[in-house]
Amino acid sequence: MYRALPLALLAATLAGCASDAPQLQTERSYRVEWIGERPLIDRSHLTVTFAADGRAHGHAGCNHWFAGYRLKGDAVGFEAPGSTRKMCAPALMEQEQRFLAALSEVKRWDFNDIGQLQLWPASGKPIRLWAE
Rank of each mutant, 00 (worst) to 15 (best):
L7G: 11
L7W: 08
A8E: 13
A8Y: 09
A8G: 12
L9P: 06
L9G: 11
L10P: 04
L10T: 09
A11H: 07
A11I: 10
A12C: 06
A12S: 13
A12N: 06
T13H: 08
T13G: 11
L14M: 13
L14F: 03
A15T: 15
A15M: 14
A15F: 03
C17M: 09
A18F: 01
A18W: 02
D20A: 13
D20R: 12
A21Y: 05
P22Q: 04
P22M: 03
Q23E: 13
Q23M: 13
L24P: 03
L24F: 00
Q25S: 13
Q25R: 14
T26N: 10
T26V: 11
T26K: 08
T26R: 11
E27N: 15
E27G: 08
E27C: 05
R28S: 11
R28C: 06
R28N: 08
R28Q: 15
S29G: 10
S29D: 08
S29E: 13
Y30T: 08
Y30E: 11
R31V: 13
V32L: 05
V32K: 04
V32C: 04
E33W: 00
E33V: 13
E33S: 08
E33L: 15
W34V: 09
W34E: 10
W34D: 13
W34Q: 13
I35E: 12
I35W: 02
I35K: 07
G36M: 07
G36T: 07
E37V: 05
E37T: 14
R38M: 06
R38V: 07
P39T: 05
L40P: 04
L40V: 08
I41R: 06
I41F: 01
I41M: 03
I41V: 07
D42P: 05
D42S: 12
D42N: 12
R43L: 12
R43W: 10
S44Q: 02
H45T: 10
H45Y: 12
H45W: 10
H45V: 09
T49N: 12
F50T: 10
F50Q: 09
F50A: 14
F50L: 15
A51Y: 06
A52Q: 10
D53G: 09
G54M: 01
G54S: 05
G54E: 06
G54H: 00
R55W: 00
R55D: 14
A56E: 02
A56W: 01
H57C: 07
H57N: 14
G58Q: 06
G58L: 02
H59M: 12
G61W: 00
G61L: 01
C62D: 09
C62Q: 06
N63W: 01
N63V: 01
N63R: 02
H64T: 11
W65S: 04
Y69M: 03
R70A: 15
R70C: 08
L71H: 12
L71K: 07
L71P: 04
K72Q: 15
K72R: 15
G73A: 05
G73M: 02
G73Q: 06
D74K: 12
A75V: 08
V76D: 07
V76I: 15
G77E: 12
G77W: 02
G77S: 15
F78S: 09
P81S: 06
G82C: 05
S83I: 00
T84W: 00
T84H: 08
R85T: 14
K86I: 03
M87K: 12
